[in-house]
Write a protein that binds this DNA or RNA. Structure first.
Length: 454
RNA sequence: GUGGUUGUAGCUCAGCUGGUUAGAGCGCUGGAUUGUGGUUCCAGAGGUCGCCGGUUCGAACCCGGUCUUUCACCCCA
């Protein structure tokens, strides 16, 4: 049998782990600078916690865990014979792998509401799983790095999250990212204005293709989807939507004047944009994008998505938004408003790699390697190593009395700075021959000198 | 889930319209140098051509299935 790993999963080499840790540490550090505290939740949840929270597509992509034991005996024969997978799933599986970090967090908040001080700011960096078809930058196991605030309606949170994104990407040296922002209330307002709440998705999907297929084709697609000519006329400004954020807000305001909800959305967006304009950004761009329609299953206010710098072909490297009702789904009487963002660790990794932004990492390695010449010599070396390790000097003995060339080659390949050779003559002198592998020079020293040099 | 694409040595890749023992570079192992690495030279090992089946006198090459990679749709980090 050839060893292999499941589709869409990966092994990570020491270098990759080091680079991933660099990203994680940067994000973690920034989360804490902004006042977030870490939590963790189980990698699998009860199915009912997850199912139905991400829409039909989401349910399909959730990995279900088979019940333990003789699970089939509890399923009903009719369902099995009908080959009704959907119904059968609920009979043979009651647990599922975490699909994202937001829903488990909402569950956490509701479950621990009496222990939590609100507003609660938490961050969470853990893997999630999706039964998706893998592509570049799309895996079936990947890490999300989430920060959320629950229990505050304040739009300052949205402002801070934009700053947080900007901070992290700046620290990572990833300049030129674009933070796209939209507001669910604006989308609802548009639907209201065109008189078709149920066609909102069709409308945004079509509008999103504007720069790909052009104005006319977008309009004809909308007509095909059953959106009326009059409706399309009303939102005409959306088709030439390429001015500044302020320009966009101005035309949205006019377009949505008759919609109370739409107007509210424009106001919210305007507050965020104005605040950021005053506060300034370091390296990211902020862009109003009305076609942004992610996470419509639970976002109710702001919607965020982060695009990699232009020229890098990669899906979004972050996303988030505000959700007013999520805790309500778990039976809280007065639902708490939440807002949060997520960083896609694996995609950020690929982008940094493509742009050559990783510094050469120093893998964990000893500062000194002791050459092994045999039993007695190894013991002599181990005495020095024991002393060195007490001083936290990373040192190791080559485990076998292999040929010199091999031992030296090992030191060279691992880029170990010093090598110590101690054979019978050194043992009688109580000395060590210390060689600097970079300069090539070597000298005879005693244990005290050895420790002070290293 | 739908439709394309990819798969040859540990790695990166050659391999002509199907034709005898499938090649290169790097890496690996050994030697030149039996207590001295990185450079050089010499030698060597390593591949059921992703897997299964079919067509053919003959398949790495053609056909079908499957797995994997990747792309578009869908959705998304």
């Amino acid at each position: 049998m050839k060893p292999s790993i499941p589709k869409g999963t990966r092994d990570f080499s020491p270098t990759e782990v080091a680079n991933r840790n660099h990203i994680i540490n940067t994000i973690k550090e920034t989360f804490e600078t902004f006042g977030f505290q870490p939590i963790e939740t189980p990698s699998f949840e009860n199915s009912e916690t997850l199912m139905g929270k991400y829409g039909e597509e989401g349910d399909r992509l959730i990995f279900k865990i088979l019940n333990s034991g003789d699970f089939l005996s509890k399923a009903d024969d009719v369902t099995i014979n009908k080959k009704d997978s959907l119904k059968l799933t609920s009979q043979i599986s009651e647990k599922a792998l975490r699909y994202d970090l937001t829903v488990p967090f909402a569950r956490y908040v509701v479950q621990h509401q009496n222990e939590i001080t609100f507003p609660f700011k938490r961050y969470q960096i853990q893997p999630v799983w999706r039964a998706d078809r893998p592509q570049k930058g799309r895996f079936r196991e990947f890490y999300q790095c989430d920060a959320d605030v629950v229990g505050s309606d304040s739009l300052w949170q949205e402002v801070e999250f934009i700053q947080l994104y900007d901070n992290v990407f700046t620290k990572l040296g990833l300049a030129g990212t674009t933070i796209k922002i939209n507001n669910r209330k604006i989308l609802s307002g548009i639907a209201e204005v065109i008189g078709a709440q149920d066609k909102l998705i069709d409308f945004t999907v079509a509008l999103d293709k504007l720069d790909k297929i052009g104005h006319e084709k977008v309009e004809s697609e909308m007509l095909v989807k059953g959106i009326s000519e009059e409706a399309i006329q009303k939102v005409q400004p959306l088709f030439s939507f390429d001015g500044s954020n302020i320009d966009k807000l101005t035309s949205l305001e006019a377009m949505l004047a008759t919609s109370e909800e739409g107007t509210k959305g424009v106001e919210e967006l305007r507050f965020v944009i104005n605040s950021i304009t005053d506060l300034g950004m370091q390296s990211a761009n902020l862009e109003v994008d009305v076609t942004l329609a992610r996470g419509l299953n639970y976002y109710t206010g702001a919607i965020f998505e982060v695009a990699a710098p232009k020229g890098v072909k990669m899906g979004s490297i972050g996303g988030g938004g505000r959700y007013d009702d999520l805790t309500g789904l778990f039976g809280v009487k007065n639902p708490l408003s939440g807002v949060g963002i997520s960083f896609g660790l694996d995609r950020i990794y690929l982008v940094l790699e493509e742009l050559g932004l990783f510094k050469k990492v120093d893998l964990p390695k000893p500062k000194v390697l002791f050459i092994n010449f045999g039993e007695a010599e190894a013991l002599y070396a181990m005495q020095a190593i024991t002393a060195l390790r007490k001083e936290n000097i990373k040192s190791e003995l080559y485990p076998e009395a292999a040929k010199m060339k091999k031992q030296m080659g090992y030191a060279n390949k691992r880029e170990i700075e010093f090598v110590v050779m101690a054979g019978s003559s050194e043992m009688t002198n109580k000395s060590y021959t210390l060689k600097n592998m970079i300069s090539g020079e070597q000298k005879s020293v005693n244990l005290t000198e050895l420790m002070s040099i290293l």
